[in-house]
Simulated assay, not measured.
Amino acid sequence: MSTLTGDPARSAVRPVAADRVRQTVVIASAVAALVGAVVGSGLVGGTPIPRVAGGALSADATLLAPAGPAFAIWSVIYGGLVLYAIWQALPSQAGRDRQRRVGYWMVASLLLNAAWILSVQAGLLALSVGVIAALLVVLIVTFVLLRAHPGGTTADAILFDGTVGLYLGWVMVATVANIAAGLTEAGFDGFGWSPHAWGLIVIAVVAVLCCALALWDGGRLAPAVAAAWGLAWIGVSRLGGALPSAPVAVAAFAAAALVLLVAVAARVAGRSHAPGPSRR
């Protein structure tokens, strides 16, 4: 394969028609996701997400619901997705192997994002659980592919790895909150266990999974920061909301701190053992 530069991470072949199609589909999918986001915000006729489905996704609907300000992270994620869509459409990106491997997975994530908003706007909470679970799977695959095929440029580190990392970390927490809302609406009684006990168990499971991800990916900060952000706002919601739970709040704060600590430790350990230039 001929390369554009001597750096294998930047290798690309001459673009073909399929590459142009992929670039166009990514752009169209990003537009669809943005339209969905605007509708979901309530700015153009849609119902704000916390008020859909009878408030099933509000900050006080379940013990695992983050406080409202947590969703500000979507502004950063959407900003990254828009910049990614523009960047991948550049002629220099058309034939890159990394874009080819991940492009349609990104399309799937953008369309599932829009589908999730449409499902909750329609009050179909059970459907939204399936959609966000599918989104989580797509993001995991995307993240694994990106890690397996490093980019080697600052643009890759920010627009690909950084954006997908934030997206994945947040959706890991959001999926748990969405499932809890769906189960609550369905009348799940927790097999007689206290909601507080279930909250502690789920927070512990999320913390373990996020720490395992941090160890596996060498301490990449984006997914850890996003997951910790979501966990911390669950803690805030349980301290100051209408559905208080001191045990869940403490567990959520502790989990957020643990995820960050493990990610930083894994990153430092990886750099100390890695030969040559330090990793991004």
Rank of each mutant, 00 (worst) to 15 (best):
V120A: 00
Q121K: 13
G123F: 08
L125S: 10
A126Q: 06
A126P: 00
L127R: 05
L127Q: 08
S128Q: 05
S128C: 07
A134E: 05
A134P: 01
V138K: 01
L139W: 02
I140L: 11
V141N: 03
T142A: 10
T142G: 08
F143S: 11
F143L: 06
F143C: 05
L146Q: 01
R147Q: 14
H149E: 06
G151K: 15
G152P: 04
T153A: 13
A155D: 07
D156V: 01
A157P: 06
A157E: 15
I158F: 13
L159Q: 07
L159I: 06
F160W: 07
D161L: 15
D161W: 09
G162V: 14
G162L: 14
T163D: 01
L166G: 04
Y167E: 11
Y167C: 06
Y167T: 05
Y167P: 07
W170F: 13
M172C: 13
M172S: 14
V173F: 07
V173D: 15
T175Q: 09
A177S: 14
I179M: 07
L183V: 13
T184C: 03
G187T: 15
F188P: 01
D189A: 11
D189L: 11
G192H: 04
W193Q: 03
W193S: 02
S194G: 04
S194T: 02
P195L: 12
P195W: 03
W198E: 05
G199T: 05
L200P: 10
L200E: 05
I201H: 12
I203M: 06
V205L: 07
V206I: 13
V206L: 14
A207N: 03
A207P: 00
A207M: 13
V208I: 15
L209W: 13
C211L: 07
A212M: 15
A214N: 06
A214S: 10
W216V: 11
G218H: 13
G219A: 10
G219M: 10
R220A: 03
